[in-house]
Design a protein around this nucleic acid. Structure first.
Lengths: 168, 168
DNA sequence: GCGAAATATTTTATGCTTAAAATAATTTGA
DNA sequence: TCAAATTATTTTAAGCATAAAATATTTCGC
């Protein structure tokens, strides 16, 4: 089995090899973080300047846009990979501002259903369009032909991370 | 010039092509964000559990570790890609806790020099070692042979982002 | 030299984020 | 049936992050 030779278990690897792999892994992490930080910072700035909105609020709307009949509130933290407590004030403000509704389930009084309003959907579509344009501007210098290849590699990385997190 | 055909200017592209590229760009961004969020969340959790420390604090120490003679305070926000105001309380606490020193420059009284203490350096090395191990665990299922390829693509992406941000 | 622009840093206000504890409702199991 | 475990959500405390304004110092232009 070829893999066993290419990536032997840590315990049987010599120190130099392992150090080199550590460095390669750290480099990958730093690049990943740098790219994400750059894109995130610019998108945040634009959301604030153009729409006086934040990305976490947009992310909630983006999830609800795909669910015409609404979502169980508890589904949001899972999909957005944030803590439940984090969403409480964000959802609260989106309700206050009329973008979404929050209605208690009649079957289970612990559960609430969140659903986008008509105005919310309208506002989301406007912002989503700009979001796409901003992203295209940011990625303009990255060859379109390489987008899918990089995305595929990141998909693979995401799978590897999911597996590793599962174990721990 | 082949590139001109592969990626024509936005204005001359038909709607379907552009939509497809938008989607590919959005997919890339979502994967990037997902990978970063997963790694960052796990590293944060471990820093807190094992060392009662945070990543921003570690990041400051990591910068200072490379500069035996210390760094001008204003250099930190640039290198860490965060705002200056953000660093004030973080640096303050690192000084209080004895990890670093902050001394006003005698030449320019606006400027301060931050420098790691002996104990700070010792603590940093211990944490950096664990940091490397955690990352290796997280990336264990990602083939070592593909690390550099992905890092290279991300390097290219980073360059493209830097250029795009320059313009705006 | 001296007022104005530039630079370095901190402060303030606001919002995101987490972990852990609290609350409330439902389900499970003896 | 009813106490205990589970599930959904909110609250709390602490820290990170930004933008914008404030402060303090230095440099620049005349």
């Amino acid at each position: 089995m070829a893999l066993a030779k290419e990536t032997p278990p840590v315990s049987t690897r010599n120190g130099a090899d392992q150090e080199a792999e550590y460095r390669a892994q750290t480099r990958l992490w730093l690049r990943l973080l740098a790219c994400t930080t750059m894109i995130e910072g610019e998108l945040r700035r634009r959301f604030r300047e153009e729409f006086d909105f934040t990305m976490p609020r947009f992310d909630v709307l983006a999830q609800l846009d795909r669910e015409p009949s609404g979502l169980v509130l508890g589904e949001l933290p899972k999909r957005l990979m944030v803590s439940a407590g984090n969403l409480t004030p964000i959802v609260e403000r989106l309700v206050e501002d009329g973008y979404i509704t929050r209605t208690p389930s009649s079957l289970d009084r612990r559960v609430q259903i969140v659903c986008m309003t008509v105005e919310g959907r309208k506002a989301f579509r406007r912002m989503a369009k700009s979001h796409g344009t901003w992203l295209a501007e940011l990625l303009a210098d990255f060859p379109a032909g390489r987008l899918d290849g990089l995305t595929g590699e990141l998909d693979h990385l995401k799978g590897a991370l999911r597996d590793a997190l599962q174990k721990s």
